[in-house]
Amino acid sequence: MKTREMATGQDEGNGTPASSGRSFAENQRLDREPNPLKATARDVCVFYGEKQALFDVNLDVEDRSVTALIGPSGCGKSTFLRCLNRMNDTIAGTRVTGRIELDGRDIYEPGLDVVELRARVGMVFQKPNPFPKSIFDNVAYGARIHGLAGDKSDLEEIVSTSLQKASLWNEVKDRLHEPGTGLSGGQQQRLCIARAIAVSPELILMDEPASALDPIATAKIEELIDELKENYCIVIVTHSMQQAARVSQRTAFFHLGNLVEVGPTEQIFTNPQDQRTLDYITGRFG
């Protein structure tokens, strides 16, 4: 089992193996060429009112690869993720300092168009949150508001392609006009992924996308992430270290609002540099 092979020995991997297209070794080679950087965070601090949730985070996100954010609950993974598409702006009293660049451009600079930013940076949430509209309208929504489709057939193509990429097409192609909320949890989550990729974002943020799903749906989503990384840059928050190991090329470990360690996934899991990382991945605290 791939998971076992990579695991540090202590990890007796009870997670499900994902049937990823490539071999683990290929995914995790330490000596692979680093891709160009998609996003960089420099000295990022986040405050919820008086409370500081992130402390001077410096993190680079490579293009066309998967970066996993791991760490114990409450350590600020979601907070960091939500900085990347400025979703934190919607929470009153939130303050972000430091610099986050997407393709070299500061996304917190005054005058930046958040609508454009969020079109370029898609997001999949922990809990599936389809709109209470039809499956078709769910996927078509982003394309509609951004005017991506010239006519109806364009829109239909966007919807079917996105659903195919999210490997949901076969299950819903005959019921596109039924409500998206009528799907199962796993299908809903794939619908949300289809909705996110329908606008062809450059960066996709996923906050524990599989946490509410059963092993089979999880495997499907992991497979999907693996395929998506050919064209997209993905940052994923996960509590499952097996999942991080299976899908990601780079892993960042957060602890109490600090980014403790970031590096190639294999290195983080086999040879962590920091005692806290080692403790976490070996399950000594959580």
Binding site: M87, G122, F125, F131, R195, A198
Partner: peptide, 27 residues
């Protein structure tokens, strides 16, 4: 109206006005 719906709409790049007119008010 559940905040998750707002987040979903914002997440695909809806403007505030679109979030309100397309999702929040109808609900």
């Amino acid at each position: 109206v559940p905040p998750s719906i707002r987040e979903a709409a914002l997440g695909v790049g809806a403007s505030r006005h679109e979030v309100i007119m397309h999702h929040v008010l109808p609900l």
